[in-house]
């Protein structure tokens, strides 16, 4: 674990936070909130924005009867207004061993994204839930709201460590993680998954748990340059490759042909993840950690509609 990950200020610099203030997390769906907030809710309520009419029934508040309409039609109608509530933003951070790889490190990169997104959500009075996932959801921080819990959020992120116990490899179980996430996250809202999605299980089954209507899910796949270009990571020649998570061994003689085939397979795998996401109505985003972090947040995520 590099020293960088333990310093809170390395996740978000103050200048970067200022540039984030202009942005907000967008949801493609209108979801119910829990408290009064800044988001339009499905609920009809007390805001100033007209929503609809309905027939008056006995007991309705007389203040909402449209009298002008009564004068024209001689019938009583009640005016309905939009409700504004807060938005629940859940960020799931994959802390499996495979994330502690690459230069820049994938986990650090994911933490910084989580911090930026969490900061944005809190600034706009949304409710933020943070989940650290490994074999399953191993830690979480729920119902943060307002600017005050920002340091808490950052500290939470800082303390998350990859599972690096080599003697007891604990492979990430994405299906189990999603299942637990769905149980913990009852509130409708935006769910953001930050992971490399290197899972030997069934991805489709895992994503099924997050396909509910109450979630607006974003999957952000992070890959290090060493994964997209293995030769740059020194993976060439006669090697015995060891899986970081389950300790599985593969004896390979890495040649140009094999690297080419690997890259094709990597692209195919990413395509597979994307297809699975699209099939479930999930937005899929992919990024290399070599991409500058601020560009990712300020440009790429805006382009892809997560931020606005």
């Amino acid at each position: 674990m590099s020293e960088q990950l333990t310093q809170p200020e390395t996740l978000l610099s103050s200048s970067f936070m200022r540039s984030l203030d202009r942005l907000d997390i967008l949801s493609r769906k209108i979801l119910r909130g829990k408290q009064q907030g800044e988001r339009r809710s499905k609920k009809k309520g007390q805001s100033i924005e007209f929503a609809d009419y309905r027939n008056y029934v006995v007991g309705d508040d007389l203040r909402f009867i449209d009298w002008n309409l009564y004068a024209r039609l001689d019938r009583l109608f009640v005016r309905l207004f939009m409700e504004e509530e807060d938005l629940s933003v859940s960020i799931a951070l994959d802390c499996s061993a495979s994330m502690d790889y690459g230069d820049p490190n994938k986990l650090l990169y994911a933490k910084r994204i989580a911090a930026a997104l969490g900061y944005l959500a809190l600034v706009h009075y949304n409710r933020v839930n943070l989940y650290a996932c490994n074999v399953t959801v191993v830690d979480h921080l729920s119902s943060l709201r307002g600017r005050r819990p920002i340091p808490r959020m950052l500290a939470f992120l800082q303390q998350q460590q990859p599972n690096s116990d080599e003697s007891l490899p604990a492979p990430g179980n994405f299906e189990q993680t999603c299942k637990k996430l769905a149980i913990l996250q009852r509130q409708p809202g935006v769910v953001i998954l930050l992971s490399d999605f290197f899972d030997k299980g069934d991805l489709s089954a895992a994503l099924r748990y997050l396909a509910a209507d109450r979630y607006d899910v974003y999957c952000i796949q992070l890959l290090s340059p060493q994964e997209t270009e293995p030769a740059s990571g020194g993976i060439i020649g006669d090697l015995r490759l060891r899986d970081m998570e389950d300790g599985d061994l593969a004896e390979v003689s890495v040649t140009a042909a094999l690297i080419k085939r690997y890259q094709k397979n990597l692209q195919a795998y990413c395509r597979h993840v994307r297809e699975q996401c699209l099939r479930r109505g999930i937005v899929y985003l992919m990024s290399e950690t070599s991409l500058p972090f601020d560009s990712l947040v300020l440009k790429y995520l805006r382009q892809r509609g997560l931020l606005g």
Binding site: I235, L241, R242, D243, D248, L249, Y262, L266
Partner: peptide, 8 residues
């Protein structure tokens, strides 16, 4: 060599 996953 240690890699994130031997899957691919």
């Amino acid at each position: 060599m240690v890699v994130p996953s031997t899957l691919l």
